[in-house]
């Protein structure tokens, strides 16, 4: 049923030549029994590891970790977490700056993946400032930075307001 449709992209055979039968080319190259067994075993092992990683592993089990893109649930009346970076400029003012790898060496998702580490070692925020020194040498050097968790509050899946909490701060 599935393959019974008209064969697409198979134009009529020119009248000048004989019908090229399906076996007109060289015969398919075969694999030995051993080569097949090795391939099947490798396939089975990788599939098994992926399944194990899916149910018992986490991202650090790459390449056999779970495919956990957007896998967590945000309650319809819950909060959405967004990590924000604020930098202290030479004039002493704080300003929100892009939390992107081109600016501070790592991106927002990477920082969010290491929140406990930043909380226990606020000096790591200083590494972001130093990365900025290297990556953006022409910009004014920051005299400090802080990571802020911004909570976007939802009611019935609609945005109703924002709250913020400082996660880690470092001053030069």
């Amino acid at each position: 049923m599935i393959t019974s449709g008209a064969p697409p992209a198979q134009p009529p055979v020119p009248p000048s030549g004989p019908l090229p039968g399906p076996l007109s080319g060289p015969p398919p190259a075969r694999l030995s029994g051993r080569a097949r067994s090795v391939r099947l075993a490798a396939t089975g092992l990788c599939v098994a590891l992926l399944v194990v990683g899916t149910f018992w592993g986490d991202d650090d089990a790459f390449p056999f970790g779970p495919f956990r893109m957007y896998s967590t649930s945000t309650p319809p009346n819950g909060n959405i977490h967004v990590m924000v970076l604020e930098a202290r400029l030479p004039d002493g003012n704080w300003r929100e700056v892009p939390l992107e790898s081109v600016v501070v060496g790592v991106n927002r998702a990477e920082v969010e993946g290491q929140v406990p580490r930043f909380q226990s070692q606020p000096a790591l925020v200083g590494r972001l400032v130093e990365a900025h020194d290297r990556l953006r040498p022409n910009e004014p050097r920051w005299t400090g930075a802080r990571l802020i968790m911004r909570y976007l509050k939802l009611r019935d899946r609609r945005f109703v307001g924002t709250e913020e909490k400082v996660v880690a701060e470092w001053l030069r």
């Binding site: 992926l50 399944v51 899916t54 149910f55 779970p66 495919f67 956990r68 893109m69 957007y70 896998s71 967590t72 649930s73 945000t74 309650p75 319809p76 819950g78 959405i80 967004v82 976007l152 939802l154 899946r157 945005f159």
Partner: peptide
């Protein structure tokens, strides 16, 4: 296929009724 099971594992069956896509778009 396996990402469906990751959602069930990390997000629970309530994943389908959560606001996860709202989160994705807001972020």
């Amino acid at each position: 296929f396996l990402s469906a099971f990751a959602k069930l594992r990390f997000g629970g069956v309530e994943w389908v009724n959560s606001a996860t896509l709202v989160r994705a778009v807001m972020r």
